[in-house]
């Protein structure tokens, strides 16, 4: 008669133990996904910052080359180059504004873990987390997030318009005989490719995390805790086709 309750008690303890192990496994997986999203987000923002900076370098070189007597355009900077400069400046400023509101963060990378200064120039209001203590581009941040995405998309378009040939003419950035422009353009092309990579990896991490967050045990036992649901980063990130990558000397 006394065997029965003991058996039940043992079974209950074992089941609780098994559940505990299972839940901590799920929590560990989810934690790892959140870390992955955070790292990927930081990498994406850094890649975007580097692209913006590389574009400004390119524009500066192009403006110098415009004064080149050997074939510059007599100090006149073509319109696509001006738009390129405006787009890059706007993208960097918008990024600063987003970061200033507490960063990309769903966590430590945004503040606390890393000095915002390490992450790049934080913009005018990079002083700290937002007043309401929320961290992500959730809440009011959604609008800022949208502005950020639009600004980066505009930069991608401006870059293509200024670099790629159209109507039988070479791109406005390229139409000067300057080795410096050529080098900086290669750097911009590499930075634009890094943006594509970083964005794919970030959205991939977001997709995995959102799927994990939908699963039953995660919702039932609130394994996500207070972590905000990460959002996709949707921009036009198509890189420009540079004339140099299209026509290299035939070495074969």
């Amino acid at each position: 008669m006394t065997v029965f309750p003991v058996t039940v008690a043992v079974a209950v303890v074992l089941a609780a133990l098994a559940l505990g192990v299972y839940l901590s496994w799920r929590a560990t997986r989810l934690h790892r996904l959140h870390v992955r999203v955070d790292i990927a987000r930081a990498a994406l923002e850094e890649a975007l910052r580097r692209r913006g900076a590389a574009v400004l370098d390119l524009v500066a070189a192009r403006v110098r080359a415009a004064d080149d007597p050997r074939g510059g355009d007599h100090g006149q900077v073509p319109a696509p180059v001006e738009e390129l400069m405006a787009a890059a400046t706007a993208a960097l400023a918008t990024r600063g504004a987003v970061r200033g509101r507490g960063g990309p963060g769903h966590g430590a990378l945004g503040h606390g873990g890393l000095d915002p200064a390490v992450l790049g120039d934080g913009g005018p209001d990079a002083a700290g987390p937002s007043e309401d203590g929320r961290t992500g581009p959730i809440d009011g941040g959604a609008a800022r997030q949208a502005r950020y995405e639009l600004a980066e998309s505009r930069l991608s378009r401006a870059l293509r318009a200024a670099v790629e040939p159209a109507d039988g003419h070479v791109g406005a950035v390229v139409g000067v005989p300057s080795e410096e422009v050529r080098e900086r353009l290669a750097a911009v092309a590499a930075a634009a490719r890094s943006v594509q990579l970083a964005r794919t990896f970030y959205n991939d991490a977001v997709s995995d995390t959102r799927r994990a967050r939908r699963s039953r045990p995660v919702r039932l036992f609130r394994l996500a805790g207070t972590a905000p649901l990460p959002d996709y980063f949707d921009i036009d990130d198509q890189a420009p086709r540079t004339p140099y990558s299209m026509a290299e000397p035939d070495t074969l």
Binding site: T28, L30, H34, V35, R222, T226
Partner: peptide
Amino acid sequence: TGPSATALLRRGQV
């Protein structure tokens, strides 16, 4: 290191 019980305790704190 496999599943960690601390992951349960620090839910959502990355």
